[in-house]
Computed example of a mutant assay.
Amino acid sequence: MHKIPKFHYYFLHPKFWLIWIGIGILYVIVSLPYSVIYYLGIRLGRMTKYFLLHRMHIIKRNLDLCFPNLSTKEKKDLFNKNCESIGMGVLETGMAWFWSEHRIKRWFKIKGLKNITQARKNKTGILLIGIHFLTLELGARILGTLNPGIGVYRPNDNPLLDWIQTKGRLRSNKKMLICTNVTGMIKALKNGEIVWYAPDHDYGRKNSVFVPLFAVPKAASTIGTYILTKIAKPALIPFIARRLPNSFGYELIIFPNKKNEVPLNTSTDMIKYINKIIEQIILLAPDQYMWLHRRFKTRPPGEPYLY
């Protein structure tokens, strides 16, 4: 059983000093006015094109695979905007970890909060369908501020970063569960808790089905949503936190409960439906999605690697 990380004096070892310096710089930057944070984040993102060359290749490849009908100029514009969002995402992570609740709420507009309120009246658990946007940490923070729940996460390989990340997320969550702890998620949902879950990444061949995602006909997609829904019978509520243009803040959109619309005949039917929801949400802010991950790395037997 994975334990929630705690602070150790070992973290003061010189091998961690660069991380502490980086966290200190991040803390200072996000303490500045938002207009300055926005300016610095956009320019930091533009610099990533010259340093994260491997990730830049992955972004371009994902855009080619998902949007083959976009013109060369449209894809280039989307690529450039996505790079800017990467820089903002770094600073937005700091905002999520270090900003006060008052400052977080000041910069967010919220739509659809009634969808969670109504679902809670039924006294069932709520499975929040999250998407890996670059605003991920910030969106989770505002959601947790409004309705504290259970965060699902993958531990960071670096123990210090794992502690800092978890400490930041627990500012607005009751507890954290490792992403492989399906039993813990089911128990939480059956107890009427809100559980944040992101089914949009490639988690490998195990417990996945190959179903369409955008223009890719066979994308490895986790059946975790199907398992949790079939057993715990929670409300299914998608959401998105997206950055508004020109440093005007953020918008949290909470969608209506999809529980009665989702086909549960087979895992394949359901995950096809979930992927359609994922597509629709990504298209609300495609420049802010995490295209830098190899979403289509797992292929069906006999099919070529796409990267």
Rank of each mutant, 00 (worst) to 15 (best):
H132S: 04
L244D: 09
G24E: 06
D162M: 01
H132M: 05
W17G: 11
R55W: 08
L53Q: 15
L264A: 05
I240P: 15
K114T: 04
T124Y: 08
A119L: 06
L244P: 07
K6H: 12
M47C: 06
Y153V: 01
R242M: 13
A235Y: 01
T268E: 15
L65T: 05
K218E: 12
F108G: 02
L136R: 10
V182H: 02
V211W: 04
K190C: 08
I131H: 14
I29N: 02
F51K: 04
P5M: 10
I237A: 00
K187S: 13
H132L: 00
L53D: 07
K297Q: 13
G41H: 02
Q118I: 11
M290P: 02
L228E: 00
M185S: 02
L63I: 12
Q288G: 10
Q280I: 04
F133L: 13
R106Q: 14
L65F: 00
I164Q: 07
L32N: 01
V90A: 11
T93A: 14
I223A: 00
I278E: 08
G204C: 04
L306W: 13
E279W: 01
A232C: 08
I274T: 06
L12Q: 15
N265Y: 04
K49N: 03
G24Y: 05
F16Q: 05
I271E: 00
A96S: 14
P159Q: 13
S35P: 02
N62P: 12
M1Y: 05
N82Y: 03
G112N: 07
T222Q: 05
I131Y: 11
S31H: 07
G125W: 05
G144Q: 10
G249T: 06
I164A: 10
K187E: 15
I186A: 08
A140C: 10
V152Q: 07
L143S: 00
Y289C: 00
K15M: 01
P14M: 05
G94A: 01
Y153F: 14
K258S: 02
F214M: 13
Y153S: 04
K230N: 13
L161G: 12
F214E: 09
F98R: 00
